[in-house]
């Protein structure tokens, strides 16, 4: 069972390498695609990708550990990144944070047990004039109030992601 799972993954990665090419520069698109589909980049994935692109596994790990949008351990299908920089702070991001934690039952840095949501801090989303701002996968929400939090989460749960979770839908 485990072996077939790995074989399936290997096939998938070979297809990705065929699609994006096998140069060093193909690493980022492949990693982003794997992250989009599997919500993580596993040890085994990193080694197969390294093999396909003729890199060292540790180099792939280095890249994955560098970018906060690439994860080694499984993240939720929806990653909520709340801006914690000064203007959002002044616009009341703390209330939004409390509301998120209350609604999801987790603290920042954690993932819900059902694997749906991950809460993270972000550093400046570039929406300083419209704070507090948060990002759900790649969609931005501005002027978020504690009242709106419930709606945002509900939308995620119901639509199961119109944005950036195509892979989840396919499955």
């Amino acid at each position: 069972m485990l072996l077939t799972e790995r074989e399936r993954l290997r096939e998938e990665l070979i297809a990705l390498a065929d699609q994006f090419g096998r140069q060093r520069s193909s690493l980022m698109p492949i990693l982003q695609e794997v992250e989009r589909r599997h919500f993580r980049i596993s040890e085994y994935c990193m080694q197969v990708i390294a093999d396909l692109l003729d890199l060292h596994p540790v180099e792939v790990h280095s890249v994955v550990s560098f970018y906060s949008f690439l994860d080694e351990s499984p993240r939720g299908q929806f990653v909520i990144r709340l801006c914690r920089t000064i203007t959002c702070e002044m616009a009341g991001k703390d209330h939004v944070a409390r509301q998120l934690e209350n609604d999801l039952g987790i603290t920042f840095g954690q993932t819900t047990p059902d694997g749906k949501f991950t809460l993270q801090w972000a550093n400046c989303l570039g929406m300083c004039d419209q704070g507090p701002a948060l990002l759900v996968n790649d969609q931005i929400f501005t002027r978020v109030t504690p009242e709106r939090v419930h709606g945002i989460l509900q939308e995620c749960r119901q639509t199961f992601g119109v944005h950036a979770v195509a892979g989840a839908k396919e499955r």
Partner: peptide, 14 residues
């Protein structure tokens, strides 16, 4: 990585 092509060590994190 470059001299020996073994590839054990890299900078991890940011």
């Amino acid at each position: 990585i470059d001299l020996q092509e073994v590839g054990v060590l890299e900078a991890i994190g940011r």
